[in-house]
Amino acid sequence: EINVTSHGEEQAKHWIELAKRMNLDVEVEIHGDKIIITIK
């Protein structure tokens, strides 16, 4: 399980695309200006 804290939408999209390509599950939480991505 990987937790990524992203401070930008572009960076977040990059991680989500990467996870989808690798067929991994992704959870995205938004806390103000921080985007927390959990890849399982």
Rank of each mutant, 00 (worst) to 15 (best):
H7Y: 13
A19D: 04
I16M: 07
I36K: 02
E10Y: 12
L18W: 15
G8A: 10
M22T: 02
V26I: 12
K20D: 05
I30A: 02
E29W: 14
T38I: 10
L18D: 02
A12V: 12
K40H: 03
K13D: 05
I2N: 09
H7K: 09
L18Y: 14
E9F: 14
D25A: 12
G8N: 10
G8I: 14
V4N: 04
K34F: 13
S6N: 08
D25R: 15
K20F: 15
I35F: 04
E27D: 04
A19M: 14
T38V: 06
E27G: 04
E17Q: 13
K13R: 10
H14S: 09
E1H: 11
H14N: 05
V4T: 05
D33A: 08
K13H: 05
E9S: 08
N23S: 11
E1Y: 12
S6T: 12
M22C: 15
D25W: 15
N23H: 06
V4A: 06
A19S: 04
E27Q: 11
V26W: 06
K40Q: 03
K20A: 09
D25L: 13
K34S: 05
E1V: 12
D33Y: 13
V28G: 00
A19L: 15
N23K: 12
T38S: 03
K20C: 13
Q11R: 09
V4M: 06
L18A: 02
A19T: 04
I16E: 04
L18T: 02
K34H: 10
L18S: 02
N23Q: 07
H31M: 09
I39V: 04
Q11Y: 13
N3G: 06
I36L: 05
I16Q: 04
I35W: 13
G8T: 11
W15D: 05
A12E: 06
E29R: 10
S6Q: 05
I37M: 03
G8D: 12
I37D: 00
E9W: 15
E17N: 11
V4K: 07
E9Y: 14
S6V: 15
A12M: 12
M22R: 03
I30D: 01
E29I: 11
S6C: 15
S6R: 06
K20W: 15
K13I: 07
E10A: 09
I35N: 00
H14D: 04
A12G: 05
W15N: 02
N3P: 07
E10T: 07
D33T: 09
G8V: 13
V4D: 04
I37E: 00
E27N: 07
W15I: 08
K40V: 03
E27K: 12
I30L: 03
E27M: 10
V26E: 00
D25Q: 12
K40S: 03
N3A: 07
W15P: 05
E10F: 12
L18E: 02
K34W: 13
D33F: 15
G32H: 10
H14K: 12
E9A: 11
I36Q: 02
I37T: 00
R21G: 02
E27T: 13
E29K: 10
W15A: 02
D33P: 03
L24T: 01
A12I: 14
E10R: 06
K34C: 15
H7S: 08
A19V: 10
A12K: 07
E1Q: 10
L24E: 01
A12Q: 03
E9G: 05
L24V: 04
I16R: 12
R21E: 06
H7R: 10
E29V: 10
L24Y: 07
S6K: 08
Q11D: 09
Q11F: 14
G32M: 09
V26F: 11
N23M: 13
H14W: 15
I37V: 04
H31Y: 11
D33I: 11
I37L: 03
E29Q: 10
I39F: 12
T38Y: 13
M22L: 11
N3L: 11
E29T: 11
V28S: 01
V4I: 09
G32N: 05
I35L: 04
N23E: 03
I35R: 01
E9I: 13
I2L: 08
H31W: 12
I16L: 08
N3H: 12
V28D: 00
K40G: 02
M22E: 02
E9K: 09
E27F: 11
R21V: 10
R21F: 12
V4E: 05
A19E: 04
I2H: 05
E1L: 11
Q11L: 13
E10W: 14
K40W: 13
I39P: 00
K20Q: 07
H7M: 11
M22H: 03
H14E: 04
E10H: 06
T38E: 01
H7L: 10
H7Q: 06
E27P: 00
S6E: 08
L24F: 09
S6L: 14
H31S: 05
L24Q: 01
D25H: 13
E9R: 08
I39L: 10
K13Q: 05
H14V: 13
D33L: 12
H7P: 06
L24R: 01
I36F: 05
L18M: 08
E10Q: 10
D33H: 07
T5H: 07
T5E: 07
I30H: 02
E1P: 11
A12L: 14
E17T: 14
N3Y: 12
E1T: 12
L24W: 13
E17F: 15
G32Y: 10
W15G: 03
N3Q: 12
K34G: 03
I2R: 03
V26M: 04
I16N: 02
N23G: 14
S6A: 14
H14A: 09
D33N: 10
L24K: 01
K20T: 05
I16D: 03
